[in-house]
Amino acid sequence: MVHRDRNYNPKERARTIDQQIVNMRANFPNFECKRSRNKATWIGLLQPTPSSNSYKVEIKYQVGDIPRVFVRAPALETRRGENKIPHTYSKNEICVYLPGSNEWRPTMFIADTIIPWTSVWFFYYETWLATGKWCGGGTHPEKRTPYIKSDTEKSRRDAI
């Protein structure tokens, strides 16, 4: 998988890793941060609702790459009889935004975007486990995204 951020534009003033670290510490002080050069890894707990589990997540970010979100504990579960968890890249990496869209830009703070989305993701994950329905919306790679989808592409797909 390519982790370069398609939205990364060196001319645009991306937040530096120091800015990200300071901002994370201010907003989510319970996250531990490890840093090396322009890379940072944060590990901390998120709990979407008082009845929810607390999830240990690891956020990896390098300026110029996309931020990545890994669930470290507890291991994500599938529903009985199914082998997939919605909106995940792998067994423990979750996808909280649409790559290539403007939802995430390197000018933004992780604490303002990735972290809230992750907490919301866990909320939908738990209600999905309980009901079988993902109520949080989203899109899938095979379906392409509405904003990329051109009319010709749509009619081609409809023809199939």
């Binding site: 907003n27 989510f28 919605p86 995940t88 890249y89």
Partner: peptide, 26 residues
């Protein structure tokens, strides 16, 4: 909510707006 990640409808200095996002991935 800052720190815990609790979802809330309470806008305050202790909370962060959940911006628009699209969950992705298979």
């Amino acid at each position: 909510s800052k720190s815990s990640g609790f979802l809330t409808n309470n806008k305050s200095s202790q909370s962060i707006l959940v911006r628009k996002n699209t969950f992705y991935g298979a």
